[in-house]
Amino acid sequence: MSFLDLKNVTKIYPNGTKAVHETSLSISEGEFMVFVGPSGCGKSTLLRMVAGLEDITEGDINLDGQLINEVDPSERDVAMVFQNYALYPHMNVYNNLAYGLKNRGIDKETIEQKVNDAAKLLQISDFLQRKPSMLSGGQRQRVAMGRAIVRNPKIFLFDEPLSNLDAKLRIQMRLEIKKLQQKVGVTSIFVTHDQVEAMTLADRLAVINNGIIEQLGTPIEIYNNPESLFVAGFIGSPQMNFLDANLNNKTLSAENFEIKNIDSDYNGEVTLGIRPEHLIESENGLINLKVELVEQLGSDNLVYGQIKNIKDFCYRSPGNQIIKKGDTLSLNIEENKYYIFDKSTGKRVN
């Protein structure tokens, strides 16, 4: 049995909203699991059920071999970092860290030892006597993590902890969280709506949509092999391009080009997905892109343009290339780097 086991977990709110549908998931010890999805998809609800802050309507949650459905949050031995940190405003940093330990009846010397160790690890030793209101966003973030670490819980739960930080700090903290988790080795679940955060942090990723796990796997598996239209559109930045097409007898016909010998027996209307980074310029390419806008990122350019009636088609070109508005580019798709989805169900067919 794995460390954390969710079996057919369902959440229905009293007003009838079904937030989580019969979700099953196993997380092994020491693993960093990320739940990613758009807002309102049920990822936070799922996390809060693990924490015990939401009742479980149906299904079982097992943590470390113990059924915890009915266990009080305070007895579950889980620690959570909240989006707004939820630091205790009237306590200084030291007491913020020590509070959970005091409630567990640990003696003063041990508490001091543990708090100081955690503070050192997070480089907040200098602020131990300060109140949270006197700290910057990044420091508060560290304190919130310190409060989780100091208790040495069975599992860390992160509920979008980086979304209140500015872009630069977010990237820095992202790195620190990952390093810290590797150092401490505690099983973690991290909830985010930011797919870059999800990709960079996760050992494994669960892409959630409408209360259902659409796909579960390592970030690179999901990137390379999205199983549904939703996952394909959600993971990857900039977003995958989608084109309407028809698939008949292993031949795909889109607006003005065809691809032959497709490895699929599906016939009918489909959606073709191509990532901007899987396009290459070549003479007599399949696609003629009329450039409308170029975003220069330095390392590469994001070129947006039009193919016939399709607008905002994106192509990622090397940064040293000079492309101007009004140019027409001839593009090819890298070999087998395209995805075909059933238009009605959104399921992958190739």
Partner: peptide, 20 residues
């Protein structure tokens, strides 16, 4: 969140009142 966080830190109803 303050209540939730305190709960996870092992506070019961009485200690949340007194400590928070």
């Amino acid at each position: 969140e303050l209540l939730e966080s305190a709960k996870l830190d092992g506070a019961n109803a009485w200690s949340f009142f007194i400590d928070f």
